[in-house]
Amino acid sequence: MQENHPTQSVTENHFNENLCVNCQVNSYEPGYNTNLCSDCRKSLIKYPIPKWIKFFGLGILAVVIVSLVRTQKYISAAVHLGKAENAIDQKRFLTAQRELSLVLNQFPGHFNANAYMMVASAYNFDYETYQIAFNKVADVKTEDEDLLSTVNAASEYIAQSFPKDTLMYKRIVAAAKDKEKLLAILDSTDEIALKTHIANFLFETRDYARVDSIVNKVLQVDPDFYQALSLKTAVKRNTAKYDEALAVCDRLLAFNAENIYVISQKARIELKRKHDKEAAVFASKALALDPNDDSAIEAKAMVDYFAGRKKESLASLAKIKAHETQSGDSTISKRLSPIILGSEIYR
């Protein structure tokens, strides 16, 4: 509250209107609302602030400084969390996972960040990260039903690729190169994950009609089954049904718009039908998402190879092989080598 009126520090009896109303010693300065002399005006402009108020002010200043220093760290984390939430809404799970990693570096135990990390890593099929995030939130109860249902859906999505009948899975892996054995096993399981594994091994025999038939049966049970849809893109590509292959890719991208494998697959489909410009766009997109992803490097190697840049394509193959020495999985280099070394005609 503030009030503005003249001072009454001098008693009315001895009051001289020609002098300063405050000190009654000097003549007042004209031109102001209150008749104050120059000295009184100056001193009242700087009306003293009591010491305890100064200390109070210093305390507030200290609190403000502490707040500003602390806030920097939290603003950065909050912005990354916000970006991750937006990315999850837009199904850009690779971006989401990266943003969440930055948040969890600072706040490893944050419930929402870990829950979102479960979602992002599930759709990226990053089992290790999913498990770490799961361990941090497994025992925490939440009333956020939306978050809970999102996490549950993601958990189901990542769990679909794990075969439940591990004994049967071992039999399938053991029979991987024996088409007759694989076909014999096919009818002895109802599990779609196992059927898809069998179809995957049969794909190597180039019996695309059989693979397509198995995949279609799997998709009748679960139309969104990732491994089956993924295999279907390869079958459609190799049977020259390019538009259908791309349509299946788009179905997969509806689950994760930043699925590098699927974007790279689109590049390979476009290359197969000699749409090299379109393929180059998809390969660049995949590489932009992760320059060290082997699927993306493979797509770039193929684009370079068919554009006559053999040196670059061989460099990409070398990069993939270097990665494979760490991962122990040589699937991509085995698939790529015959194409860019000229022993297999891709198109």
Partner: peptide, 30 residues
């Protein structure tokens, strides 16, 4: 703000447990 605009202040009460809980009495600004 009074000090900023060079307005003389006659009395300040920063806090008291009655209404009004605080006040500043100053010359009307120019």
């Amino acid at each position: 703000f009074c000090r900023l605009f060079k307005v003389p202040v006659f009395e300040v009460c920063y806090f008291r447990p009655e209404n009004p809980v605080g006040y500043v009495i100053h010359e009307p600004a120019q």
